[in-house]
Every structure is written in structure tokens, then in C-alpha cells.
């Protein structure tokens, strides 16, 4: 009884955590499903077919390819733009700091539907409504990822002891050497985290993408489309692979952290 009272919060917490994994179990299970009909979405039997022929459903793999391309480019673009801004915010003095903070905060506090519709309104107003597609999606994705990059990298930079850079200068390192040997290696985990976040935000986005995609189809749009008709089980294969990759990255990062956590304790 006493044990229960002391652990009740932890047990509830673990229960909530398990609840967040319920759909994942279903996704993994359904990736092995052998459906009797396209219209009935339930587990009918085990098969490896979905895994052996992931590209069988028409359009799935091309949508996936489009999504990966867009996400990679959006990650690259937003990580560069956001990292530069984070450095400016933490390390440099400039006029209009508070409006800059607002400009970075607002995209995170705006509902996606509003961001998506205003971008569409812009494209229509400037006569680009016919050119909606890959590039407009990419523009939108970079836009909404930048703020998250800034916030992540800024936190890392602000948490860094600025004495370290002064110590490097004191030890005969030029500003350039100081940046590449001290600042950048210490901020890099933050930049990497921001890039991963950008990738997953971009890869997963539906609402903004859907409004600005024209005839281009990304993976979420493909899923949305087939959800009305009948879902090919290969969608669950993709879901499972995404989950596995993210777990590998996150757990790998965590193990790496654990190995070096003591060593890096002072940096964070």
C-alpha cells in the first residue's frame, strides 16, 4: 500500500506513456496485415507482402520521394537561416530586438491553417497560383521551420559559458579559430537537434502543404487522399520505418549522450 502510494504518479506516468504508443503498435501490426478487402480496415491475416512490395500502391513512393526531397531541402534552408539568426540574437546587438523576438515567436503561435491560407493568398495575389507545387511547398516549409531552429539553437548558445570563447582568445586563438574550434563544436549538438526537428516538422506537415501544393503530392497528402478511399497497408510500412529510424536516431543520440554526459555536463 505504502509502495503504491509512493509510486502512483510514476505508474500513472508510465500508463500515459504506454497510451501514446498504442497507435504505434497498431501501425506496426497493420504493416503485416493481409487485408481481405480494401474498404474494411482491420487485421485479417499476417503477410510480408507489404514490406516486400512497399511501392506497389500507385503514387505512394513518388509522394514519399517528393516529401524526402522537400524535407531535406527545407531542413537545409531553415537550419542555415535559423542558426544565423540565433547567433545574431545571442551574440550581437541590434536595433529592434523585441520586434525580432516577436517575428520569431509568431509563426509558432499561428495556427497552421492561417499560415497556409495567407501564403496561398499571397501566391494568388502575385499571380503564382498556377505555379503552386514543389517550390511553393519548400518556401512554406522553410518559413515555418525557421522559428523552431532559432529557438533550439538560441537555447544552446545562450546556455554556453561565454568565458569559453574569451578563454580561447586569451590562449592565442584568433576570432576565426575561436569560432571553429570552440563555439561551433559546442553549439553543433543544438544545430543537429534543430535540423532533426525541422526534418520531422517538414516531413509531417499536411495543413500548410495541402493549401500550397497545387498538383504536387507529398506523403501526408497521399495518406490523406487514400484515407477517403481505402488505405493500402504499405502506408503502415512507411509509418513503421519512420518510427524505427527516429527511435534509432533518438536512442543512438541518447546513448551517445550518456557516454559523454559527464564530459559535457559543463557545456549545457
Amino acid at each position: 500500500m505504502r509502495w503504491l502510494r509512493e509510486h502512483v504518479v510514476l505508474i500513472l506516468g508510465i500508463a500515459i506513456l504506454l497510451y501514446t504508443f498504442i497507435p504505434i503498435f497498431v501501425v506496426v501490426l497493420m504493416s503485416f496485415n493481409d487485408p481481405s478487402s480494401r474498404l474494411i480496415y482491420r487485421f485479417d491475416g499476417f503477410t510480408m507482402d507489404n514490406w516486400l512490395h512497399p511501392c506497389e500502391p500507385e503514387g505512394l513512393c513518388s509522394a514519399l520521394g517528393t516529401s524526402i526531397q522537400i524535407s531535406l531541402l527545407a531542413t537545409l534552408g531553415s537550419t542555415i537561416l535559423g542558426t544565423l539568426m540565433a547567433f545574431a540574437l545571442v551574440r550581437h546587438d541590434f536595433l529592434g530586438r523585441s520586434s525580432m523576438n516577436l517575428l520569431i515567436f509568431l509563426p509558432m503561435a499561428t495556427p497552421e491553417i492561417v499560415m497556409g491560407s495567407s501564403l496561398l493568398a499571397l501566391f494568388v495575389a502575385t499571380g503564382f497560383s498556377g505555379q503552386l507545387g514543389f517550390w511553393t511547398i519548400l518556401i512554406a516549409h522553410i518559413m515555418f521551420c525557421v522559428s523552431f531552429v532559432v529557438v533550439t539553437v538560441r537555447a544552446r548558445l545562450a546556455g554556453m559559458d561565454d568565458n569559453l570563447e574569451q578563454a580561447a582568445m586569451d590562449l592565442y586563438a584568433t576570432p576565426r579559430e575561436t569560432f571553429w574550434r570552440i563555439t561551433f563544436p559546442l553549439v553543433f549538438p543544438g544545430i543537429l537537434g534543430a535540423a532533426l526537428l525541422s526534418f520531422s516538422l517538414s516531413f509531417d506537415d499536411f495543413i500548410i502543404t495541402n493549401l500550397n501544393a497545387g498538383n504536387t503530392t507529398t506523403f501526408p497528402m497521399y495518406v490523406w487522399g487514400v484515407a477517403q478511399r481505402g488505405i493500402p497497408m504499405q502506408v503502415n510500412v512507411v509509418g513503421t520505418v519512420m518510427f524505427a529510424i527516429s527511435v534509432l536516431i533518438v536512442v543512438g543520440g541518447e546513448l551517445n549522450n550518456r557516454r559523454r554526459s559527464k564530459a559535457l555536463a559543463t557545456a549545457s
Binding site: Q166, Y172, T266
Partner: peptide, 18 residues
């Protein structure tokens, strides 16, 4: 600072953690 023959032991030590 990187051009003068003066070195500092910082209050926080400022050892490079990496």
C-alpha cells in the same frame, strides 16, 4: 587578447568541455 603575452585563469576555469 590573442596577441598579448598575458594569460588568464578564469573564475569559472572556462575549461573547454569538448
Amino acid at each position: 587578447p590573442y596577441k598579448r603575452p598575458v594569460n588568464t585563469v578564469f573564475q569559472s576555469y572556462a575549461l573547454f568541455p569538448h
